[in-house]
Nucleic acid binder design. Sequence first.
RNA 1: GCGCCUGUAGCUCAGGGGAUAGAGCAACUGUCUUCUAAACAGUAGGCCACAGGUUCGAAUCCUGUCAGGCGCACCA
Length: 583
Amino acid sequence: MNLEGKIKTAIDKVLKDFGVPGGEFKVEHPENEAHGDYSANVALVAGGGRDLAEKITEKLRADKGLEEIASKIKVAGAGFINISIKTDHLITQAVELLKEGYMGGKSTRRQGFVGQRIMVEFTDPNPFKEFHIGHLYSNIVGESLCRLLEVEGAEVKRVNYQGDVGLHVAKAIWGMKQMIQKDIDLNSLSKKSLPERQKFMGQAYAMGATAYEEDKKAKEEIEVLNKKIYELDDDVRQLYEKGRGWSLEYFETIYKRLGTKFDDYFFEREVGQVGLKLVKEFLKKGVFEESQGAVVFPGEKYGLHTRVFVNKLGLPTYEAKDLGLAPTKYGRYQYDQSIIVTANEIDEYFKVVIAALKKINPKLGKKTRHVSHGMVKLPEGKMSSRTGKIVTGEWLLDEARARALKIMAEAEISEEEKEIIAEQVGQAAVKYALLKTGIGQDVVFNFGTSVSFEGNSGPYLQYTYARAQSVLAKSETRSTKHEKISDFGFRISDLAPEELAVLRWLYRYGEVVDEAAAELSPNLVANFLFELAQRFNSFYNKMPILKAKDEKIKSLRLLLTAATAEVVKRGLYLLGIQSPEKM
RNA sequence: GCGCCUGUAGCUCAGGGGAUAGAGCAACUGUCUUCUAAACAGUAGGCCACAGGUUCGAAUCCUGUCAGGCGCACCA
């Protein structure tokens, strides 16, 4: 059990003596550390104020379990019970962090995720369209959530759902046809580099999408193409297969670069038919209704809005496809929970789809959860691949790498290594920038202000790690080597405030990981790491480690250094960020 | 018009009933002959959108107002 658990248990035991019901109170870290490491508001919640707090505290002081870990238990303020943890025990906790394979709390607080089979759908770019920074955001959020769930003991399947049929494909193919007639033939295009082919398709889509809105004749042609694409008509087959293949091949290079490996892929083509069948079946049972030639789900009945599931041409819309996706996913992997990560612009849409799913398949409906992240916007407003007003994911990653490389210009590192490190640092800057705030927040993207290499940033954390590693390398202390706790025997007063500050933050790592997983909030990990790094850097700046006055102090400082490095590395992993040994 | 989300320092955001509201960036001052200065120490900057309520206690919960974003029928 962790410290928080021990304290709660001890308080619960004592409460009976006062006839106060347990469970309602909180044990948390007071903001002001002068108040101790943990603080309980039992007395306040019970309405007893200081008097009750004093009585409870007296009993707590006699508790055997607490006696081992607590150096001080006292009442303060309106009736808070503040508890300080013994320095020895904090050191023990730091040593624990260095143990092989320690990744976090593994649900020491909540048993929720151990053994759970969770499917997480994220990224979801569409073939024939650009991979823009919105997809990048989805990938970064999704991957981080997966890693958090994994360290909490869940069995995670990463999946990607991609739209390989639908109007956007028709628009792109219409554009491809125009461009191929005019500028280039398919064969010579096939020989071009992947990024060039990708660019070609982006242009083709923009052309088609614009024509669809501005040119009535083009609109009709695109609608005909749309139907042909569903049927894989010879007129579109070759272009379709080439274009789809190029897109998927291109996306794969981005996943690889980012460090995501999907376990499975789903496509709209395959789930569209499943969805269509379901809608038809449940139309008869009254879940869906016919309206103006289309089949709709009457969301108004459930406080939502009505959406079209099958259009009047008899084609499944995105709604029906998503309906078909659920059982298709479950057929391949019997999940306990299905999480779908998307941008929040389709929050309302998903409420309707999940409501419909609950009607036709309550079991899967209950297991399905939509988690949304904010939208990435440009300073000029919303991105649009139709007008070409977008920032691609690849551009951002390249730009960040170039910036990192520039900063490293003077470092004494081989050019080859610099390339590798610059990529890792650039990604850290981008990923951290997107994960350090709550995932629900919209992000106005502006390279200069959004992607930072100093202060509260990914590179700052990497730098902290590299710096610590450098010290450890010189000391010949392997980061996993345990220090002998009994060698220390420090009392609180012996430690410098900077040392204590690090020690009093390190042990919280497990709690933070638990919380972050339970709340699906990677930003909690980011915030924790930044605070840890600040404390460590402050300590590092003030206290000599290798040249410490005596051996005992030196080994304590090395322990702090090793534990910080280890925690930063593991924490960054949870954000999908690598930790270079030097930079 | 209806629904969902958001208003905290000049900017970007933490904090989401508890003890003096925090950080980064930007501005200004200092610190590299000493373990990596992508760092550290410091100064300055706030009617937590506004108005009511609930509570021992509200930036946090409720109601209303204002402002912004997103969504609302055959796109995804």
